[in-house]
Amino acid sequence: MASVLKSEFELKAPILPLHDRPTSHFRPVLDRNERKEFLLSLPEAESVRPLLRDGNLEVLVSSTSWTVDEDFGLLIESLCRYSDVASTSQPELPHVLAIITGKGPQRETYLRQISKLEQSGKLKKVTIKTAWLSTDDYARLLASGSLGVSLHMSSSGVDLPMKVVDMFGAGLPVVGWCQFEAWSELVTEGVNGMGFGSSGELVKLLVTLFEDSRKLEKLRDGALAESNRRWDDEWDPIAGKLLGLIS
Protein backbone atom coordinates (compact mmCIF):
# COMPACT_ATOMS: atom_id res chain seq x y z
CA MET A 1 0.00 0.00 0.00
CA ALA A 2 2.85 2.38 0.81
CA SER A 3 4.44 1.82 -2.60
CA VAL A 4 1.09 2.39 -4.35
CA LEU A 5 0.51 5.65 -2.47
CA LYS A 6 3.96 6.87 -3.46
CA SER A 7 3.98 5.75 -7.08
CA GLU A 8 0.36 6.34 -8.12
CA PHE A 9 -0.61 9.25 -5.85
CA GLU A 10 2.85 10.83 -5.50
CA LEU A 11 2.46 11.05 -1.75
CA LYS A 12 5.57 12.68 -0.28
CA ALA A 13 4.81 12.39 3.45
CA PRO A 14 6.33 9.53 5.50
CA ILE A 15 4.18 6.41 5.38
CA LEU A 16 3.93 4.21 8.45
CA PRO A 17 2.01 0.95 7.84
CA LEU A 18 -0.51 0.00 10.51
CA HIS A 19 -1.60 -3.62 10.01
CA ASP A 20 -4.80 -5.22 11.23
CA ARG A 21 -4.45 -7.67 14.07
CA PRO A 22 -6.90 -10.30 15.38
CA THR A 23 -9.65 -9.50 17.86
CA SER A 24 -9.42 -10.84 21.39
CA HIS A 25 -11.72 -13.87 20.90
CA PHE A 26 -9.23 -15.45 18.48
CA ARG A 27 -6.88 -17.27 20.84
CA PRO A 28 -4.84 -20.48 20.56
CA VAL A 29 -5.99 -23.65 22.30
CA LEU A 30 -2.76 -25.25 23.43
CA ASP A 31 -4.17 -28.47 24.89
CA ARG A 32 -4.41 -31.15 22.18
CA ASN A 33 -7.11 -33.09 23.99
CA GLU A 34 -9.23 -29.95 24.25
CA ARG A 35 -8.84 -29.35 20.52
CA LYS A 36 -9.81 -32.95 19.75
CA GLU A 37 -12.86 -32.84 22.03
CA PHE A 38 -14.13 -29.72 20.30
CA LEU A 39 -13.71 -31.28 16.86
CA LEU A 40 -15.47 -34.45 18.01
CA SER A 41 -18.42 -32.34 19.13
CA LEU A 42 -18.98 -30.86 15.66
CA PRO A 43 -21.81 -32.37 13.59
CA GLU A 44 -19.59 -31.87 10.53
CA ALA A 45 -17.15 -34.44 11.95
CA GLU A 46 -19.73 -37.16 12.63
CA SER A 47 -18.76 -39.41 9.70
CA VAL A 48 -15.03 -39.30 10.52
CA ARG A 49 -15.08 -39.43 14.31
CA PRO A 50 -13.36 -42.85 14.48
CA LEU A 51 -10.47 -41.49 12.39
CA LEU A 52 -10.31 -38.38 14.56
CA ARG A 53 -10.19 -40.45 17.75
CA ASP A 54 -7.40 -42.63 16.33
CA GLY A 55 -5.34 -39.66 15.16
CA ASN A 56 -5.58 -40.63 11.48
CA LEU A 57 -7.19 -37.37 10.42
CA GLU A 58 -6.06 -33.81 9.64
CA VAL A 59 -8.53 -30.94 9.72
CA LEU A 60 -8.29 -28.32 7.00
CA VAL A 61 -10.17 -25.08 7.67
CA SER A 62 -11.16 -22.30 5.30
CA SER A 63 -13.74 -19.56 5.11
CA THR A 64 -15.25 -18.07 1.99
CA SER A 65 -18.00 -15.76 0.81
CA TRP A 66 -18.64 -18.20 -2.06
CA THR A 67 -18.16 -15.54 -4.75
CA VAL A 68 -16.04 -15.29 -7.89
CA ASP A 69 -13.43 -13.39 -5.86
CA GLU A 70 -12.19 -16.73 -4.53
CA ASP A 71 -11.61 -19.75 -6.74
CA PHE A 72 -12.98 -22.47 -4.48
CA GLY A 73 -12.73 -24.87 -7.40
CA LEU A 74 -8.96 -24.72 -6.97
CA LEU A 75 -9.27 -26.16 -3.47
CA ILE A 76 -11.69 -28.87 -4.60
CA GLU A 77 -9.35 -29.90 -7.41
CA SER A 78 -6.42 -30.00 -4.98
CA LEU A 79 -8.33 -32.16 -2.52
CA CYS A 80 -9.29 -34.59 -5.30
CA ARG A 81 -5.66 -34.90 -6.32
CA TYR A 82 -4.59 -35.32 -2.69
CA SER A 83 -7.17 -38.10 -2.29
CA ASP A 84 -5.80 -39.86 -5.36
CA VAL A 85 -2.22 -39.70 -4.03
CA ALA A 86 -3.31 -40.84 -0.57
CA SER A 87 -5.36 -43.71 -2.01
CA THR A 88 -2.67 -45.03 -4.35
CA SER A 89 1.01 -44.12 -4.13
CA GLN A 90 1.13 -42.82 -0.52
CA PRO A 91 -1.48 -44.70 1.52
CA GLU A 92 0.20 -43.61 4.76
CA LEU A 93 -1.15 -40.09 4.25
CA PRO A 94 -3.99 -39.23 6.65
CA HIS A 95 -7.62 -38.69 5.78
CA VAL A 96 -8.50 -34.99 5.50
CA LEU A 97 -11.63 -33.35 6.85
CA ALA A 98 -12.06 -29.99 5.12
CA ILE A 99 -14.50 -27.67 6.89
CA ILE A 100 -15.48 -24.62 4.87
CA THR A 101 -17.38 -21.85 6.65
CA GLY A 102 -19.37 -18.98 5.20
CA LYS A 103 -22.40 -18.17 3.07
CA GLY A 104 -22.65 -16.86 -0.47
CA PRO A 105 -24.18 -17.14 -3.95
CA GLN A 106 -22.02 -19.97 -5.32
CA ARG A 107 -22.29 -22.26 -2.30
CA GLU A 108 -25.03 -24.53 -3.69
CA THR A 109 -23.23 -24.89 -7.02
CA TYR A 110 -20.09 -26.11 -5.30
CA LEU A 111 -22.07 -28.40 -2.99
CA ARG A 112 -23.54 -30.14 -6.03
CA GLN A 113 -20.06 -30.49 -7.49
CA ILE A 114 -18.73 -31.98 -4.24
CA SER A 115 -21.62 -34.44 -4.10
CA LYS A 116 -20.87 -35.68 -7.63
CA LEU A 117 -17.20 -36.13 -6.77
CA GLU A 118 -18.11 -38.14 -3.66
CA GLN A 119 -20.46 -40.38 -5.64
CA SER A 120 -17.79 -41.00 -8.28
CA GLY A 121 -15.25 -42.07 -5.64
CA LYS A 122 -12.84 -39.18 -6.19
CA LEU A 123 -12.82 -38.14 -2.53
CA LYS A 124 -12.00 -41.45 -0.86
CA LYS A 125 -9.56 -39.94 1.62
CA VAL A 126 -11.16 -36.50 1.86
CA THR A 127 -14.40 -35.37 3.50
CA ILE A 128 -15.62 -31.87 2.64
CA LYS A 129 -18.20 -30.22 4.87
CA THR A 130 -19.64 -26.71 4.95
CA ALA A 131 -20.63 -24.98 8.17
CA TRP A 132 -22.13 -21.80 9.53
CA LEU A 133 -20.79 -21.30 13.05
CA SER A 134 -21.21 -18.81 15.85
CA THR A 135 -18.39 -16.32 16.34
CA ASP A 136 -17.05 -18.26 19.33
CA ASP A 137 -17.26 -21.65 17.62
CA TYR A 138 -15.54 -20.30 14.52
CA ALA A 139 -12.69 -19.06 16.70
CA ARG A 140 -12.49 -22.46 18.41
CA LEU A 141 -12.52 -24.23 15.03
CA LEU A 142 -9.53 -22.19 13.88
CA ALA A 143 -7.72 -22.94 17.12
CA SER A 144 -8.47 -26.66 16.79
CA GLY A 145 -7.67 -27.20 13.12
CA SER A 146 -4.48 -28.59 11.59
CA LEU A 147 -4.06 -26.11 8.77
CA GLY A 148 -5.85 -23.05 7.41
CA VAL A 149 -6.37 -22.30 3.72
CA SER A 150 -6.75 -18.85 2.19
CA LEU A 151 -7.99 -18.52 -1.40
CA HIS A 152 -8.04 -14.71 -1.26
CA MET A 153 -6.58 -13.49 -4.58
CA SER A 154 -6.48 -9.73 -3.91
CA SER A 155 -7.69 -8.00 -7.07
CA SER A 156 -5.85 -4.84 -5.96
CA GLY A 157 -2.68 -6.68 -4.95
CA VAL A 158 -2.32 -4.59 -1.80
CA ASP A 159 -5.12 -5.76 0.50
CA LEU A 160 -4.51 -8.52 3.00
CA PRO A 161 -6.93 -11.37 3.82
CA MET A 162 -8.40 -10.87 7.28
CA LYS A 163 -9.10 -14.62 7.48
CA VAL A 164 -5.34 -15.17 7.70
CA VAL A 165 -5.09 -12.58 10.47
CA ASP A 166 -7.79 -14.47 12.37
CA MET A 167 -6.07 -17.82 11.76
CA PHE A 168 -2.81 -16.50 13.14
CA GLY A 169 -4.68 -15.09 16.13
CA ALA A 170 -5.83 -18.67 16.83
CA GLY A 171 -2.33 -20.09 16.30
CA LEU A 172 -3.34 -21.85 13.06
CA PRO A 173 -0.66 -22.14 10.34
CA VAL A 174 -1.76 -21.15 6.84
CA VAL A 175 -1.30 -22.09 3.22
CA GLY A 176 -2.63 -19.48 0.83
CA TRP A 177 -2.74 -18.02 -2.65
CA CYS A 178 0.42 -15.92 -2.76
CA GLN A 179 0.39 -14.41 -6.24
CA PHE A 180 -0.05 -10.82 -5.09
CA GLU A 181 2.49 -8.32 -3.86
CA ALA A 182 1.32 -7.85 -0.28
CA TRP A 183 1.34 -11.57 0.65
CA SER A 184 4.77 -11.41 2.27
CA GLU A 185 3.65 -8.58 4.57
CA LEU A 186 1.43 -11.07 6.35
CA VAL A 187 2.95 -14.53 5.89
CA THR A 188 6.60 -15.40 6.41
CA GLU A 189 7.29 -18.29 4.05
CA GLY A 190 8.21 -21.50 5.85
CA VAL A 191 7.81 -19.89 9.28
CA ASN A 192 4.08 -19.42 9.90
CA GLY A 193 2.71 -20.45 6.51
CA MET A 194 3.41 -21.27 2.89
CA GLY A 195 2.13 -19.91 -0.40
CA PHE A 196 0.87 -21.54 -3.59
CA GLY A 197 0.03 -20.31 -7.07
CA SER A 198 -1.79 -23.32 -8.53
CA SER A 199 -3.74 -26.40 -7.50
CA GLY A 200 -0.66 -28.52 -8.18
CA GLU A 201 1.41 -26.45 -5.77
CA LEU A 202 -1.30 -26.72 -3.13
CA VAL A 203 -1.39 -30.52 -3.48
CA LYS A 204 2.38 -30.66 -2.96
CA LEU A 205 2.07 -28.53 0.17
CA LEU A 206 -0.69 -30.73 1.62
CA VAL A 207 1.30 -33.91 0.95
CA THR A 208 4.50 -32.40 2.36
CA LEU A 209 2.90 -31.11 5.55
CA PHE A 210 0.63 -34.08 6.24
CA GLU A 211 3.24 -36.77 5.61
CA ASP A 212 5.69 -35.21 8.09
CA SER A 213 4.07 -33.84 11.24
CA ARG A 214 7.33 -32.12 12.21
CA LYS A 215 7.03 -29.73 9.27
CA LEU A 216 3.45 -28.90 10.18
CA GLU A 217 4.36 -28.40 13.84
CA LYS A 218 7.14 -26.01 12.82
CA LEU A 219 4.58 -23.86 11.04
CA ARG A 220 2.26 -24.09 14.03
CA ASP A 221 5.04 -22.81 16.27
CA GLY A 222 5.41 -19.84 13.94
CA ALA A 223 1.67 -19.20 13.94
CA LEU A 224 1.59 -19.41 17.74
CA ALA A 225 4.36 -16.81 17.90
CA GLU A 226 2.35 -14.65 15.51
CA SER A 227 -0.71 -14.99 17.75
CA ASN A 228 1.06 -12.95 20.42
CA ARG A 229 0.95 -9.84 18.22
CA ARG A 230 -2.23 -7.94 18.99
CA TRP A 231 -3.72 -4.59 18.08
CA ASP A 232 -1.86 -2.68 20.79
CA ASP A 233 1.42 -4.03 19.43
CA GLU A 234 0.66 -2.29 16.13
CA TRP A 235 -1.08 0.82 17.43
CA ASP A 236 1.18 1.87 20.30
CA PRO A 237 4.56 2.07 18.54
CA ILE A 238 3.15 3.48 15.27
CA ALA A 239 -0.09 5.46 15.52
CA GLY A 240 0.26 6.13 19.24
CA LYS A 241 3.62 7.83 18.81
CA LEU A 242 2.60 9.59 15.58
CA LEU A 243 -0.42 11.16 17.32
CA GLY A 244 1.57 12.01 20.40
CA LEU A 245 -0.45 9.71 22.64
CA ILE A 246 2.57 7.67 23.65
CA SER A 247 6.03 9.04 24.31
Rank of each mutant, 00 (worst) to 15 (best):
G157E: 10
K218P: 03
T135W: 15
A182Y: 13
L216R: 02
L141E: 03
R107C: 11
L11F: 14
W183Q: 03
K215L: 07
V96Y: 09
S115F: 02
L75I: 05
V203K: 06
I15M: 14
T67Y: 06
P43A: 14
S3Q: 14
G55C: 10
P173M: 07
G121E: 09
D212S: 13
G121H: 10
G121F: 09
L57E: 03
P173E: 02
S87T: 10
S87P: 12
E46V: 07
I99Q: 13
L79Q: 12
W177G: 00
D71S: 11
M194H: 05
R81E: 13
E58V: 11
R112S: 15
K215Y: 00
T109Y: 14
L60G: 04
F26G: 06
L11I: 15
T188G: 00
T88Q: 15
L224E: 05
V61S: 09
N33F: 06
D84V: 09
L42G: 02
G148Q: 05
R229H: 15
E37S: 12
F168Y: 13
H25D: 13
P14C: 05
Y138T: 04
D221H: 10
Y138V: 03
L18G: 05
P105Y: 06
V164C: 06
V29A: 00
S3T: 14
E181N: 10
